[in-house]
Design a binder for these strands. Structure first.
Lengths: 119, 119
DNA sequence: TCTATATATGAGCATTTATTCATATGTTTA
DNA sequence: TAAACATATGAATAAATGCTCATATATAGA
């Protein structure tokens, strides 16, 4: 009943020609890595909620914290992440800091994802 | 030099009217959660590479493992994730299983993200 | 300059996650 | 039915991540 442990896919690639074609068309690894970093940002419901809220216009940190059931600190940490990815920008007005969307792609990325969900 | 620890944003919401407007337009929490789950899938470079490779047509697991610098097991695990999210589908042909994209949104989500990267 | 308020940030902790290793399952062929 | 091969999967582990708590920083006003 013992089965051999043959290392898979070593003796012959199944479709070397398809592989070569695909390999030539793939984005470079570094770019794939950057893209994954971007989508990681969208992969958290707190950050998504912030982005959706900012679709309607700028809001300050307090507003955002009040909107969600999380602490001011948590919002601030997430805003930093969004800021580092150039998805939001901010302006200061006295003690208050207003955040807004920095990129028009945000809305289209969100809506493409939503379409898939609603399938 | 001691500063008070006033809990932030408790005594008065800064913009209650903006908050109410935004709150009414936000997607429900459950939907935001599902959307975050979807973007989480795109937030890994191994899975992104698989998706990009499948843009060109169907490939078997061995092909995909050969394309990337990861084990067959890792690819298989990730394909399961993609399958569970209905992003890929598969067909069996003898011992070989061919995977392909299941959803036309995949391409548009990828390209919207790429546009942001390339800014 | 002292106090109050809005925001930012570092450390610590708990949870999630991607990989590897070992092995199981399913299919074909001898 | 036994061996070979393609794929799947469970357990273990290491790394990443999101939150909270405490505190720092920045600005406004008395």
């Amino acid at each position: 009943m013992r089965r051999d442990l043959a290392p898979c896919c070593q003796e012959q690639q199944i479709h070397p020609e398809a592989l070569e074609k695909v390999r030539a068309l793939l984005p470079p690894d570094e770019r794939l890595y950057d893209l994954a970093e971007l989508f990681k940002i969208f992969g958290d419901s707190t950050r998504l909620k912030i982005l959706y809220a900012l679709l309607e216009g700028e809001l300050c940190v307090c507003d955002l914290a009040g909107l969600m059931a999380v602490s001011q600190s948590a919002v601030s940490h997430q805003l930093r992440v969004l800021k580092n990815s150039k998805l939001v920008k901010f302006r200061r007005e006295g003690k208050t800091i207003y955040y807004s969307l920095a990129d028009s792609h945000v809305e289209s990325i969100l809506s493409q994802g939503m379409e898939h969900i609603e399938e």
